[in-house]
Design a protein around this nucleic acid. Structure first.
Lengths: 154, 154
DNA sequence: TTGATTGCAAAGAATTTGCACTGGG
DNA sequence: CCCAGTGCAAATTCTTTGCAATCAA
């Protein structure tokens, strides 16, 4: 289920260093200190990781590559609440998101019964359902979540 | 349930022309040709309506007022898929949205069972649920929806 | 070789901010 | 009268685009 060179060729895209590196980053190659891997990244975050890896890749290229990947169906672009664009690799099946409002951590989930309800709701409203986005916002219980202390969870 | 001058005072905001006019627009005063009233507007759209009404109110003021209204809990800001900010008056209870990808029409709905499911999902994921956003995207069956013809619904 | 791809800088779009002027209470 | 509120222009932030140099096939 890994995304690789062949996927680029299939999409009619040449296999270049920027594209491969960006794919790697989206795959979560760079793990966080506590083992948590963020697979939902903004263009800026991806750009920073490339710089950290001493790669001379421009921010414009990051945006261009991500936009091409999106068009090719390799990645999805979300906006969540801030309006800032974040990108995620399209591996596995459809899912929705739950975001920590303190640390930005993003987890995924699917609920079959909700998906069915949505279909029924669209139908009742007279819409041909094409897509949907559901994002839950809350505070996670991760040990090093920035705001954890101020919430009194020791 | 109308929002009015008193709501502004309660929020510690002076009752000024720009604020009142923007409230009116958000209430849907300007009805569409076919009777449909759009209550989910971008800052730019609100600005245009003010200009149409020959009001000399700057776009910056529109943004400032909307941001203040949001902070006061009078309006909500959403981003939907484009990332463009749209504003809606906070009247009535919580609800989610269904958006027509062809004409931009926005309708509202609530589903108690989904809300409960969300709570359970957040809990299971170890999150303290604070808020959520659910948007369904589809094609509506409104007579004058721009793309209706190309979909073969006569 | 040769068109696709990239980097950089400049352009755009959306939103916010600085500042002197205006107006509501 | 006096400070919150406003208009305008300039500044920011995020994203896209133009163009000459570079690279994959």
């Amino acid at each position: 289920m890994r995304v690789e060179s062949q996927d680029l060729r299939n999409a009619g895209l040449k296999v270049t260093t920027p594209r491969l590196r960006i794919l790697e980053i989206l795959e979560g190659s760079g793990d966080d200190s506590d083992g948590w891997v963020q697979r939902h990244l903004s263009a800026e975050e991806i750009y920073k990781r490339l710089l950290d890896a001493n790669l001379d890749i421009g921010l414009a290229t990051v945006y261009r590559v991500l936009t091409q990947f999106e068009a090719a169906g390799l990645v999805s672009r979300h906006h969540f609440d801030s309006g800032l664009g974040v990108f995620e690799l399209n591996q596995g099946a459809h899912h929705d998101h739950i975001v920590c409002i303190d640390c930005g951590r993003v987890e995924e989930f699917v609920d079959r019964s909700i998906e069915e309800k949505q279909m029924a709701i669209a139908d009742r409203a007279g819409f041909e359902l094409r897509d949907h986005a559901m994002v839950l916002y809350g505070q996670c219980k991760r040990a090093n979540c920035p705001d954890r202390k101020s919430r009194g969870n020791k």
